[in-house]
């Protein structure tokens, strides 16, 4: 599973401003909902492939990592293909009718969802957790007008993101320990599997609460009050290329929007 992981690198994509990457990833996903014809879908697909190649992430590693999602999406698409009844009939086997409408819906579903997964994975693979939280923090800043505690939200978010790897490590240690005591975590029966989760979740919760307490104490001791008027150590620099990328995607959005049938 590679969704949510970060692979450090120095590719063009890695160096883009995280705010740009966040906005662009969102734009591409929105555009994918407008691209409902073969040609526009092909263009968008090629763009994604280009991003993937430029990011210098190994293709085999990438697709193996998202294999699970792709299979799930394909499964959903096949169900839609089998159960859609409108439209012309292409052919039928017994009670199953394959219709043109079904085929269209199924291929669109597969295209859109796999595109979304690919783009989201690419975003997290090329953007570190800290960059993501900085970008989100910047983008929700306008909400301060509505008295939203933006600084606190950003702090919470960055702490949460920071501790994901720690918790994953903990989960693997605790589940190793419980497996060594004969927990049936790897058993085939689902009921047994669910029962085996409690001995892993309980210690994880306890450890998280303890850690939160320790962290809060440490922050108070070091004089943390609130995030207002804090200066930043990592300063994000928006460059011309970031503007160009956004403009290009906006153009694509409008173009597909107008030509959509």
């Amino acid at each position: 599973m590679i969704f949510g992981r970060y692979v450090s690198g120095d590719s063009f994509i890695h160096k883009l401003d995280p705010r740009d990457k966040l906005i662009s990833a969102t734009l591409i996903i929105i555009i994918s909902f407008l691209a409902n014809e073969p040609l526009s879908a092909l263009i968008l697909g090629l763009i994604c492939l280009l991003i993937l190649l430029v990011s210098k992430i190994k293709l085999l590693f990438f697709f193996r990592g998202i294999r699970f999602f792709l299979i799930m999406i394909a499964f959903t698409a096949i169900l839609q293909l089998l159960f859609a009844n409108n439209g012309e009939e292409l052919f039928s086997v017994g009670p199953i009718r394959i219709t043109s409408f079904g085929a269209k819906i199924a291929s669109l579903t597969f295209f859109r969802f796999s595109l979304a997964i690919i783009i989201a994975t690419l975003f997290t693979l090329t953007t570190s957790m800290i960059q993501i939280s900085d970008a989100v923090g910047y983008l929700i800043r306008p909400l301060k007008i509505f008295k939203l505690p933006v600084d606190d939200i950003v702090l919470t978010l960055s702490i949460a993101l920071r501790f994901i790897p720690t918790m994953l490590q903990e989960i693997s240690t605790i589940s190793d320990a419980q497996k060594a005591r004969g927990s049936s975590l790897n058993s085939r029966s689902i009921a047994k599997k669910i029962k085996a989760i409690v001995p892993i979740l309980m210690p994880l919760f306890i450890a998280s609460v303890r850690r939160a307490e320790d962290l809060a104490t440490a922050m108070i001791m070091r004089g943390y009050s609130d995030g207002k008027n804090r200066t930043k150590f990592r300063i994000m620099k928006w460059k011309n290329r970031d503007t160009l990328i956004i403009l290009f995607l906006l153009f694509l959005l409008i173009f597909f929007g107008i030509t959509k049938k």
């Binding site: 190793d176 060594a180 001995p199």
Partner: peptide, 21 residues
């Protein structure tokens, strides 16, 4: 491996973290 896990007991680092009951 189930039989092996019974025969080989393993106490991990900071094992107090694994207490859950």
């Amino acid at each position: 491996l189930s039989d092996l896990r019974r025969k080989v007991g393993m106490l991990f680092q900071f094992p107090e973290q694994q207490l859950f009951a």
